[in-house]
Simulated scan of single mutants.
Amino acid sequence: MTRVCFELRIKPELLDEYVARHSPVWPEMLAEIAAAGRRNYSLFVAEGGRLIGYYETDDDTAAQAYLTASPIAARWEAEMSRFFVGLEARPDEAATPLTEIFHLADQLAAASTTSAEGDAL
């Protein structure tokens, strides 16, 4: 499984409308996200329009290809593109990926393995 986190900037003057457009998202777009293999998908917004997104997937390249080919996702992304600062492509293709530097479960598992190896000596 891959964890993906990304950042975009929403135009501050359109932030309220952007939030409203996600309450709720079109049912057919929700179905496409799920069909693409993305799960545990969340968006977070901060003052000034900073948007952070997170999802999990088994194959992000395949998920992105599925959504790129989807007419429903193309329509959604076309409608969403006006909300973002400085994008030259679809928002789902132009988001800045963030590098994961810490994950609790991974480190707990590694610490448990190290501890178990130490106990075996």
Rank of each mutant, 00 (worst) to 15 (best):
1 M>E: 14
1 M>G: 13
4 V>M: 08
10 I>H: 01
11 K>F: 07
11 K>A: 15
12 P>A: 06
13 E>A: 06
14 L>Q: 09
15 L>H: 00
16 D>S: 14
17 E>N: 09
17 E>C: 05
19 V>K: 10
19 V>M: 07
22 H>S: 02
23 S>D: 13
24 P>H: 03
26 W>Y: 13
26 W>M: 07
29 M>C: 01
31 A>W: 02
31 A>C: 00
33 I>M: 12
35 A>Y: 01
36 A>Y: 01
38 R>T: 04
39 R>D: 08
40 N>H: 10
41 Y>T: 02
43 L>V: 01
44 F>Q: 00
49 G>F: 04
57 T>P: 03
58 D>L: 12
59 D>R: 01
60 D>H: 13
60 D>Y: 10
61 T>Y: 09
61 T>L: 14
61 T>K: 08
67 L>V: 04
68 T>L: 12
70 S>Q: 04
71 P>A: 01
72 I>Y: 07
81 S>G: 05
84 F>G: 05
84 F>P: 08
84 F>N: 04
85 V>E: 13
85 V>Y: 09
89 A>I: 05
91 P>V: 00
92 D>G: 14
93 E>D: 12
94 A>M: 09
98 L>E: 10
104 L>D: 06
105 A>S: 15
106 D>E: 13
106 D>N: 13
107 Q>N: 12
107 Q>C: 11
109 A>I: 13
109 A>H: 14
115 S>C: 12
116 A>R: 15
116 A>M: 14
117 E>V: 12
117 E>C: 10
118 G>W: 11
